[in-house]
């Protein structure tokens, strides 16, 4: 990406706002529009924006690939694990009633946990997809440069 001061400054100003928005959407999802899916995409978009402007290598320093790759199954596990916990507490799979002191509280907590699982999976999957595509693009660029240098 070409160096443009405007782009860099604007991105730096926007990034915290986007991340805050993602978290707001995540935890305010039961009261307003939003939830794990949207928040995951928004959070991934923040890192992707950073990667597009400052280079993917920089983005990988902030959010390393190993973390992303662990987070993909982790989200699914959080979701499925919630179901297992409710089985252990003597209810049906994915029935959150026993998680809290009152049924409604349990449901509330269950929704929050499950939404968090969704968030983790969606955000990390989007990010992982972006990393591999972007990594390919960088490799292609380097190869083109090397070939030009060789000839």
């Amino acid at each position: 990406m070409r160096d443009t001061v405007i782009l860099r400054v604007v991105v730096k100003v926007l990034l915290p706002a986007i991340l805050m928005f993602a978290l707001y959407v995540q935890f305010h999802g039961e009261y307003g529009p939003g939830g794990g899916f949207q928040a995951g995409v928004a959070a991934a978009a923040a890192v992707i924006l950073y990667g597009m402007v400052f280079g993917i290598a920089e983005a990988r320093k902030v959010v390393p690939r190993s973390i992303v790759n662990t987070m993909i199954p982790l989200g699914v596990l959080i979701f499925a694990g919630t179901g297992v916990v409710s089985i252990l507490l003597g209810e049906n799979y994915l029935d959150y009633t026993p998680l809290g002191s009152k049924p409604a509280k349990g449901q509330h907590l269950g929704i929050l946990v499950v939404e968090f699982g969704v968030f983790v999976t969606v955000a990390s999957t989007m990010l992982a997809i972006f990393y591999v595509f972007g990594g390919r693009a960088d490799e292609a660029d380097e190869k083109a440069k090397n070939e030009e240098g060789g000839e």
Partner: peptide
């Protein structure tokens, strides 16, 4: 009353149709 969540979409997504959503997450995974 059952989930304390005014946004019905979220309630249905995570609670009433939790199985569906688990499947979708698995697909994304």
């Amino acid at each position: 009353e059952e989930t304390k969540s005014p946004n019905v979409v979220t309630a249905v997504l995570a609670s009433y149709r939790g199985f569906d959503t688990l499947g979708e997450v698995a697909v994304i995974f």
